[in-house]
Design a protein around this nucleic acid. Structure first.
Length: 196
DNA sequence: TTTAAGATGCCC
DNA sequence: GGCATCTTAAAC
């Protein structure tokens, strides 16, 4: 499967967050390729978004990558988990899309193994931003990796037909931004994370 | 140098 | 509801 073109990511962040629903997340491991279909995303829109790490153009070692080219991976550590974002356009605007859930397509046996022995149902493999990075073995080493290049990339999938939106998860203490409907997900898909 | 908080997930 | 566990950033 071929990666999407770099221009795919050069879009305003809200539009990109919706466009990414239905696209494929692919990680080529030494002995197996893992594939998932993106079913839930969130947009974080830099300077004017209090919930974003780059709020008020805050520029640190962590947020630096968001000021770089669209299509680069912004990985960061949240408690015991790594979360995966993709930088959106335009360049110099610190915008990014968080991948919150995917539907597992290929490599489920590996995903079960990477997730540990406590998974009862396959919907629990990848229905959360920390779960999917664990299932897909996406680590901090991918910080700055172009998501158009093997071994970790986005490929064209079947676009989502029914998209719903909601407030973002876990950002309740961020003033007005807590109300923005910038979480997008495929309606009725069982792999979408539960809202908290 | 120290400390507190966090775009989470698992267990009790 | 508690807690693991680690990076970042702000306080001291």
């Amino acid at each position: 499967m071929d990666p999407v073109n770099l221009t795919f990511f050069n879009a305003p962040v809200l539009r990109l967050a919706k466009k990414m629903l239905g696209q494929l997340l692919i990680h080529e491991l030494a002995d197996r390729t893992l594939v998932g279909r993106i079913v839930e995303t969130e947009a974080y829109r830099g300077p004017d978004d209090e919930a974003a790490h780059s709020f008020q153009n805050r520029r640190t070692k962590r947020t630096e990558i968001m000021y770089d080219k669209p299509g680069l991976a912004y990985t960061y550590q949240m408690h015991t988990h790594t979360l995966l974002n993709i930088v959106a356009g335009p360049i110099d605007k610190p915008h990014a899309v968080l991948i919150r859930a995917v539907e597992p397509i290929y490599g489920l046996e590996e995903m079960y193994r990477f997730r540990g022995g406590h998974i009862k149902h396959k919907t629990e493999l990848t229905n959360g931003p920390g779960k999917l990075t664990q299932a897909f073995q996406i680590k901090m080493k991918y910080y700055g990796h172009p998501m158009t290049n093997a071994p970790l990339y986005i490929a064209e999938g079947r676009p989502s037909e029914k998209i719903e939106s909601s407030p973002r998860v876990g950002v309740r203490n961020t003033g007005e931004a807590a109300n923005y409907q910038w979480r997008y997900y495929e309606k009725g898909n069982p792999y979408v994370s539960r809202f908290r």
